[in-house]
Amino acid sequence: MKILSLSGFVPEQICDTIRFTGYSAGTSISHYCGYASDYISQVLNDASFDGAVFPKSCDSSRIIKSYLGQTDKFVYQLPVPARRDEIAVNYFAGEIRAYKEAVEEHYGVDIANINIKDRIEALNKRNEEIRALYENLEEKSYSEYLRGIHKMLATPLNEQSIPHPGKTNTGGKRVYLVGSFLTSEGILDTLESSGLNVVGDNLTESGRLASITPCKTDGDIYKNISESILSARLSPTQNNFGDILERDLKEIKEKKVKGVIFLTQKYCEPYDYLYSV
């Protein structure tokens, strides 16, 4: 089983997935997010993957399945709630269970609760270490940190290693990054060579990953996973820009940030709308 996943909403607690971090020679679709079209290309063209899991969270991800119709690989669209209240937690819990059952059925495997609990514990530990790194970001090389995370997420859980970024020039101008998954790693070099010190971000694979509350292992594990994933600081696809602004601005003030760099993919409407406020 080797499944390519697109989003932080995909529950790593269920089974290993390889996080999509970029792919060249992408399919070109007019007015369509390049990140999603590169993902479609990799699913269709990279024979080393036998499955794909992606959310229904934005307009581009919503129609990925339409473009993957011709593949006989495991293709699963995870319905991510567009809200974060109790109704959403219960709903998402049910959808996580359905995802687990679909993986079991397609691959002919049995994913036992005890295995899920083991993964929950391992993920809690990993996320705690990421959180510790994130909290001391200003002392670390941000490019090494983020590249390390990308490498980590593209590896099965039991082979993952936490990044060990070197020190950075703490005298650099303190900046904060806003955006989705940062596939263009060259931007990181540009930031550092410009003398900027990234002290915080809300990127999917960094600030949001670090903000996830530990997942409980007792009681209904699907509800626990749902609560944990939905506890992360919000994506603009979750429809609470006010919450995002409040949380980002609080961190920006606390970290005495001098400037914000807003990264948007072409045709990524959730971030385009967020940018306007």
Binding site: D59, G242, Y273
Partner: peptide, 14 residues
């Protein structure tokens, strides 16, 4: 109909 409209409604809410 799409996921764009809720995004737009967010900026209206602001």
């Amino acid at each position: 109909q799409c996921n764009t409209l809720p995004n737009w409604w967010n900026i209206l809410a602001e």
